[in-house]
């Protein structure tokens, strides 16, 4: 029996999702560290962790491909493929990132070090953008090609990055107030982007099964993943004890929510297009009626 209604794609599983989790968080961390770091602040812990996350994500995707020994072929189609472009940017990012960690471990440590840090941030931003475009170009998955997903992915990456900055604050001896304030704003933005995305997919021809998956998770994601880190960030900004601990907690929750969001979108809500006919065939004395659209209420008719 053939499947007519959209079904969940199985070509990209948690390993592909891990690439978006690690890549987004790593890129977001590089951007956040470059913007929020003060002269003299250590940059290398952030850069090292960011490169580890991005590399881990790429390695995870590598484990998913069918012919891993041919992985270098991924560089062959920069003209139109966002996956190829992502690989080029990753190479540049690793080259500049490693040099920065070795040459300018601290902001302002060496002349020109600031430029290296900013180069890292710019490449990280481009990397984040290529990842959002990878999903947008997958026209077979309606939940991914919805344009509202792109700003959501960008702001999620940035939120994860700032969250990681707070997590690293005790280790990297960084300030908490700046990142906590930024995290508060980003969580607000991400929550808004999530709600807009949810609303858009309901009316954009995304299979109802995919919408249902995201709708079911939405309340928990908003309350635990957004309201909670906003509260924690707010408390971390007050002249109360344990601002670092509160900041770390806010960062962990914001990061986990971002990763859960990506996992849900990339794997659980990844229903394919399915099949649909605008008309039924006219046989004998029958009349044409609107065609079936399996997977939608009343078969789409």
């Amino acid at each position: 029996m053939s499947r007519n209604a959209p079904w969940r794609q199985t070509n990209w599983d948690w390993r592909a999702a891990a690439n978006f989790m690690g890549g987004g968080a790593g890129a977001g961390l590089l951007i956040a560290a470059a913007i929020v770091s003060a002269p003299g602040d250590p940059f290398w812990p952030h850069a090292a962790l960011a490169l580890l996350l991005i590399g881990g994500g790429l390695a995870s995707a590598w484990f998913e491909i069918g012919r891993p020994l041919r992985a270098m072929n991924v560089f062959l189609h920069p003209r139109t493929s966002w996956m190829t472009r992502e690989s080029y940017v990753a190479v540049a990012l690793f080259a500049v990132g490693l040099v920065t960690v070795l040459v300018a471990p601290r902001s302002g440590a060496v002349p020109g070090g600031g430029a290296l840090i900013w180069a890292c941030a710019v490449l990280a931003a481009v990397y984040l953008f290529t990842q959002t475009r990878i999903l947008a170009a997958a026209r077979g998955i309606p939940a991914w090609r919805e344009p509202a997903l792109q700003p959501l992915m960008v702001v999620t990456g940035l939120t994860e990055g700032v969250g990681l900055m707070l997590v690293l604050a005790p280790v990297a001896a960084g300030a908490v107030a700046g990142p906590a304030a930024v995290l508060l704003c980003l969580c607000l933005l991400r929550g808004l982007a999530w709600l807009v995305y949810l609303r858009r997919i309901e009316s954009a021809g995304v299979p109802p099964a995919a919408c249902a998956v995201l709708r079911r998770a939405s309340t928990g994601l908003i309350v635990v993943g957004h309201v909670l880190p906003i509260l924690l960030s707010f408390l971390a900004l007050q002249p109360w004890p344990w601002p670092t601990g509160l900041g770390v907690l806010a960062g962990v929750v914001a990061l986990a929510a971002g990763w859960l969001l990506k996992y849900l979108v990339v794997t659980r809500a990844a229903y394919n297009q399915g099949f649909a006919l605008p008309w039924t065939p006219v046989r004998g004395a029958g009349d044409a009626v609107a065609g079936p659209r399996p997977g939608w209420p009343n078969g789409g008719t």
Binding site: E64, R70, M83, G140
Partner: peptide
């Protein structure tokens, strides 16, 4: 001989026409 089996084409196809047997 060029394909790496990344599955990107499979998720890009709106007709579910592509298959990968691992």
């Amino acid at each position: 001989d060029l394909c790496i089996g990344c599955g990107y084409c499979a998720v890009a196809c709106p007709y579910q026409a592509r298959h990968i047997s691992h």
